[in-house]
């Protein structure tokens, strides 16, 4: 919880640190972004529309946003369970499991992609059992979803853990002693407390998945109209020396991501109303 204090902080340096913040953000974030916008600014409107709204690009938006959304959703659900278990129950090997969660953070994405492809392709350990069932995991949209789920997990778990750790079990005991059922306790006592963190985790996992390239290109198969993700199309355009077309798609991706993240932030603010209510 944060609120603006009218009086001065006991520590000086607001002006200096704000200046630094603005400078740093401009240098690291805004400068490259504005370069992308400037590059597209030279395009005519029809050329821009053609670059960002051709059927192949539209198909890639559907896959990229769809798979990222689903993967973040799944991670939100299972990430909550993982975080809950890690925080609430002491068990042998907990430290180890805790460290495992971070692995998708640290692993180079290409390694993840190759490992997942080897696992899920028709002759892989997992893929050979899915193939007879008619499920094609690698080289299909499902493969994209699997890769994005893999890389998104730590974001949800790591944002939830500190919040869950602060949650006092006494609150739940009080709820139960006052006659609340198990689902009521979860839905009316626990969930409102962790909802903002849950949404943050979701937003982080979603944003990460949207930009993910390295692991997905190995497992997706890169088929036009079916399994091409938007970042791949950007690279493809670059490799055809179409720098403007590439930045045009990048701009669309940027604007939509920004709007979605803004929406999630608003949702978060709204969900905070339920806290301590």
């Amino acid at each position: 919880m944060s609120f603006i204090r009218p009086q001065r902080s006991v520590l000086p340096g607001f002006g200096l640190s704000l200046g630094f913040t603005l400078f740093y953000l401009s240098l690291i974030v805004l400068l490259p972004l504005s370069a992308a916008f400037l590059k597209t600014a030279g395009m005519t409107w029809p050329a821009f529309v053609e670059a960002v709204a051709s059927p192949r690009v539209l198909a890639s938006y559907r896959l990229s946003f769809g798979a990222s959304f689903l993967a973040a959703l799944v991670n939100m659900f299972f990430g909550l369970i993982v975080a809950w278990v890690l925080v609430r129950y002491p068990f042998p090997g907990r430290r180890l499991v805790d460290a495992l969660v971070d692995l998708p953070f640290a692993l180079p994405t290409a390694v993840a992609g190759i490992a997942l492809t080897a696992l899920y392709s028709a002759h892989g350990w997992v893929g050979q059992f899915l193939e007879p069932l008619g499920i094609k995991a690698a080289f299909s949209p499902l493969g994209v979803f699997i890769a994005l789920t893999f890389i998104g997990l730590p974001f949800v778990v790591r944002t939830l853990q500190p919040v869950l750790a602060e949650l006092e079990p006494e609150m739940e005991e009080v709820a139960v002693s006052l006659g609340a059922g198990r689902w009521q306790t979860f839905g009316r006592v626990i969930l409102p407390e962790i909802l903002p963190a849950l949404l943050t985790g979701f937003a982080l996992a979603f944003a990460r998945a949207l930009g993910e390239y390295g692991s997905v290109v190995f497992i997706s198969g890169n088929m036009p109209m079916r399994t091409e993700i938007t970042p791949l199309l950007i690279i493809t355009k670059l490799e055809q020396y179409d720098y403007r077309g590439a930045t045009a798609i990048a701009v669309v991706l940027l604007v939509v991501s920004f709007l979605l993240l803004l929406l999630i932030n608003l949702l978060q603010k709204w969900s905070r109303r339920f806290q301590f209510a």
Binding site: A118, H123, F139, G221, N222, M223
Partner: peptide
């Protein structure tokens, strides 16, 4: 009839030879 489009020729060889696709 093409199930996967790798970005380079060596990638395709790997797909065919090593992954058995």
């Amino acid at each position: 009839n093409v199930p996967v489009l790798d970005s380079g020729a060596r990638g395709s060889t790997t797909t065919f030879v090593q992954r058995g696709i």
